[in-house]
Simulated assay, not measured.
Amino acid sequence: MARWEPNASQRLASAALELFMERGYENTTVVDIAQRAGLAKSTFFRHFQDKRGVLFGEELMTEQLVTAIAAAPDDATPLEAVARGLGALGESLFTDERRALVTRRRAVIDAHPDLMERETLKIASLTASIARALADRGVAGPVAEAAAQLGALVLKWAYERWTEAGNEDGFGDLVRRAASDVQAAVQEV
């Protein structure tokens, strides 16, 4: 693969996941990843801080989610605004074309406790960003926090279902179902 080809970040992520699955996360180096992608080590570090960074690109996810929450209709409830934001991720990050890549990512993370811990931190950061985005919409602090926590649960359920073997449902549809399930559960409490 030529070094000048576009999508270096995506190529590095794909190469990393291939190597993590083949050799294991611990036995894969940044140099291995760059070589598999046909890129220089310096290119890797222009896109990622370290090899964990390949698995945890939360900045883009947070930016898209917060933007979509802000764009939700004024009359949307806090959870509806969050569900809209999560659904928007299905149009860019959780697409059918990326499903295999994201599923491999989940398998690598689930096999390593330290990566699972990092994933938990990522979700906590994302949840805090959701609460701030809701507060920016004028939602009161406790309500924004509760809606953000419920939104994290919606994301968890949708993500788990989307990455299940044999699932072909779109991420946006799964978010809507998970949000409905969460709303029903809250009414039961």
Rank of each mutant, 00 (worst) to 15 (best):
E91L: 13
H112N: 03
A83D: 07
L121P: 01
S92L: 11
S9P: 03
H47C: 10
D169W: 07
E188S: 12
A158W: 04
I69Y: 10
L153T: 15
R161I: 12
L39K: 04
E117M: 00
T67Y: 05
T67F: 04
A158F: 06
M61L: 10
P73W: 13
A140D: 15
G151Y: 06
T120V: 00
L19F: 01
A147Q: 09
G90I: 10
R118S: 00
S42T: 13
Q149V: 14
F48M: 05
I109S: 01
T28E: 01
A76D: 15
G138R: 08
E5A: 13
V186H: 01
V143Y: 09
T29A: 02
N27D: 09
V154M: 07
G170F: 03
A184K: 15
L121G: 00
A111E: 06
E22C: 01
V182K: 04
G38V: 07
A71F: 02
A83K: 02
M1L: 10
T43F: 06
A135K: 10
P78L: 12
A178E: 05
S9V: 00
A68W: 11
H112T: 00
A13H: 09
F20V: 00
K51D: 05
R98G: 10
L93M: 13
L55T: 00
R3W: 02
Q187C: 11
R99Q: 10
F48G: 02
G87S: 08
V66H: 04
F48L: 07
T127N: 01
S14Y: 07
I33Q: 05
E59M: 11
P78K: 10
T127K: 00
L65D: 08
R176N: 13
V82E: 03
A68Q: 07
